[in-house]
Amino acid sequence: MDKTQAFQLIARDVVEGHIDFPTNVQVSLRLRDALSDPDCHVDKAARLVEAEPLLAARIVALANSVAYNPYAREISDLRSAISRLGFAALRSLSMALVARQMAGGALPVACQAIADQLWQHTAHVAALSRVIARRVTGVDPEAALFAGLMHEVAGFYLLAKSPAYPGLLDGDFAEWIEVGERQVGEPLLQALAIPENVLAAIEVYWDGYLGMPPAGLGDTLLLAEQLSPVSSPLHRIGSGNKFPGIDAEIEVLVGEALLTEILAESQGEVASLYAALCF
């Protein structure tokens, strides 16, 4: 079976609802659904999150990051952390845990190494997306954070399925980029009930065409992808990357400031966000 056939089979299973989520992913999805309930208040959210110690730790860390704590007023309890972040960021973190858990567990060592790099890349892109949204493109920073956390979810699912398809991760990932990522990603994102604006942004990312000057959620995600210091291990083709025509040091004039100046000013914010997102 070639890779394209394997992608078709994986995508067909997703479309038909045959999604093999580990038990811990199912728990995290139930948490996401509970947090979406308009009657869910902070106390209830705190009790739900307490059942996921890893998520609880990341919530407190994110609440104390420069992005959410510019005045350095550190907190240590979960309820205060949730109050500071808000439910939008909380749902984003719960879905980030879903993505990370997909490729967890008993994967081969080589596959786990890919998963670790993919998560480092995801965390960098999410952190940069939030800063770029706030400082450059003017879109909702929380939506940008969420888009960054979700933009490689199909890749994590690919890694989870790879033991059932020998040779799927061999060689480069040209076929994944050209065919598989969108083929698997679209039904998977729909199955995960990803909001339409975020799904549209990820489709812009799959297309790979960055508008100049960048505007909108899709461009925010693309620019963050290009500026990430850790590349996606699934987007390598030979020695290049997914966007060989875009200079990683590109200067974008925004108001009276250049992109590199804005990123330099935001270095601490990006670093603290990245650290908080490292599950």
Rank of each mutant, 00 (worst) to 15 (best):
L221S: 05
A174N: 06
L277I: 01
E175K: 05
P229H: 05
E181I: 07
L169W: 05
A224G: 10
V270Q: 02
G238A: 10
V204N: 12
G216D: 07
C278L: 14
A191I: 11
P229Y: 00
E261K: 03
E196T: 14
L210Q: 08
A248C: 07
N197Q: 15
W176V: 01
A200N: 13
V184E: 03
H235S: 05
L189P: 01
F279V: 13
P244A: 05
R182S: 15
A271N: 05
H235I: 00
G218R: 00
D247K: 07
A215N: 14
Q190W: 13
A224H: 05
A264H: 10
P229F: 01
P244S: 01
E251C: 09
S266Y: 04
S232Y: 01
F279I: 09
L259H: 02
L192N: 04
G216V: 02
F173D: 01
E269K: 01
L234T: 00
N197I: 08
R182M: 11
G218V: 08
E196R: 14
E225G: 04
E186T: 13
L253D: 08
L263S: 03
F173E: 03
E186Y: 11
A264Q: 10
E251F: 11
G180D: 12
L227N: 00
A174T: 14
P187E: 07
D207Y: 10
V198H: 00
Q190P: 03
Q267I: 05
N241T: 08
L263T: 05
H235R: 05
